[in-house]
Design a protein around this nucleic acid. Structure first.
Lengths: 152, 152
DNA sequence: GTATATGCAAAGGTTTTGCACAGCC
DNA sequence: GGCTGTGCAAAACCTTTGCATATAC
């Protein structure tokens, strides 16, 4: 949906500019399969392109989200960013082992439909993770039920 | 499930002690209908019982969660604590107007069952809020779909 | 050339930690 | 009296903001 060329146009249309920093940040996220936190991203960028300031990373993330290129979700460790195209991923995170899984799109749609019917609430299950205990952890050890451990 | 008397015993069994600060913090949360953030709690406690340090609030919250009296959930504004008994509340928060609603317990159970069937994942829908657009907001204004606004 | 973007530095806010003292049991 | 809990202060983080400079267009 958003090849770099498109992005440049999108920016220009708004009187905004493409810079090496923005390109590096964008590229880093586009090559990240899942999601990445601002701080992790800042560190990674720092490696590839020393001198890029964290504040630039934050400003760029906010910008890219505003123009619809990126989105963020809230996982256990805090906010994480991902490509907007990759939205639709509903994150399941195991509170025991930390393993992550994704709900399928159809499944997510079914859940959302269910919530909409009863509450008229149009849920976006991608914005927050869903915590719980994965099958492996559930079958092993004690079975005290889904009780999230300390988050931070 | 946890009257103060019980709590004192629970603490004693672990070689822990009941203090005025812990009592004040616990009381504040027990009298809070929904959920409350650590900082908000610290401020409230400060009003009732000047001199109580924020660090004490944080340590107490962690302790009370560890012994199962409290639990926390991740809402838009960050982590919030609530009575463990009051778990089962699945928070729906509107990204447009900020309004909050709760999923019924049966409904939550149905959703969890659905996820379990297909993924073997035992979800705890109470740990993270569910973001989306409430009926009112959906019916008014533009209908661009559930797109969470900037969180922080 | 001009408006935008960046780096830098400082500030803001939240949460954690070390340590000496206070206080519960 | 001994061990736990608290206050205090400092530090560790993460994130935001103001401003001068650099730079994309």
């Amino acid at each position: 949906m958003h090849a770099p060329a498109d992005l440049v146009s999108t920016l220009r249309d708004r009187g905004l500019r493409m810079t090496p920093q923005r390109l590096a940040i964008l590229s880093a996220i586009m090559h990240t399969p899942g999601h990445i936190s601002p701080t992790a991203l800042a560190r990674r960028i720092q490696g590839e392109m020393p001198g890029v300031n964290p504040s630039t990373v934050y400003r760029t993330l906010a910008l890219l989200e505003e123009i619809g290129v990126l989105a963020h979700a809230h996982l256990e460790g805090g906010a994480e960013y991902h490509r907007a195209e990759e939205a639709g991923h509903v994150h399941l995170t195991c509170s025991r082992c930390g393993a992550g899984d994704d709900l399928s799109l159809e499944e997510a749609t079914r859940l959302q439909a269910m919530i909409e019917e009863t509450h008229g609430f149009h849920a976006d299950l991608t914005h927050f993770a869903i915590s719980g205990v994965c099958e492996t952890c559930w079958n092993s050890v004690d079975r005290t039920g889904p009780k999230p451990a300390r988050t931070r």
